[in-house]
Amino acid sequence: MNLPPPPGPPPRHHVLSVLVENRAGVLARVASLFARRGYNIFSLAVAPTHDDRFSRLTVVVDVESAPLEQVVKQLNKLVNVLEISELDPRDSVERELVLLTVTADGDRRQEVLGLVERFEGRVLDDGADEVTVSVEDHPSRLDDLEELLRPFGIVGIQRTGRVALPRLESGGPV
């Protein structure tokens, strides 16, 4: 039941895909540049690419905190940064993973599991009064899920931050 991203107000953040050298200290350079220039990082995900000399960062930058052009130009000045592209949400595929531990006791257990199923999530850990589930989806859908589960009682949550790649030219959402 994968849905295209819902139409709505323009995004409050920019998504930057940053190709960097895969070596010690590079993440710290990027992070401290953001801190030093007063740019807020909304989320950040990083892992090596298929070529292990390089890593790709997906950085979500708060739109309000900085003119995007300066962010990109300052990032480009870092010697270990190779390439930066802004991913327009309309022209990219975006995903995020969330792990959630939710109170699910008695009658409410079925309701929680039903919601998780609607989001094509999986139960990773099953306790007496709680379940831990994982859901992978568009970040805005994870926001929705979070809202829906909140009344049951969210005990723990860890989101990965969004990862994104440009949409293929003739492609569409799958």
Binding site: A24, G25, A28, R29, S32, L33, R36, K77, V79
Partner: peptide, 14 residues
């Protein structure tokens, strides 16, 4: 040292 000087150098390296 590289942490302290990161924001005041064009580049640094340990």
């Amino acid at each position: 040292t590289v942490g302290i000087t990161r924001s005041v150098t064009k580049h640094n390296e340990l």
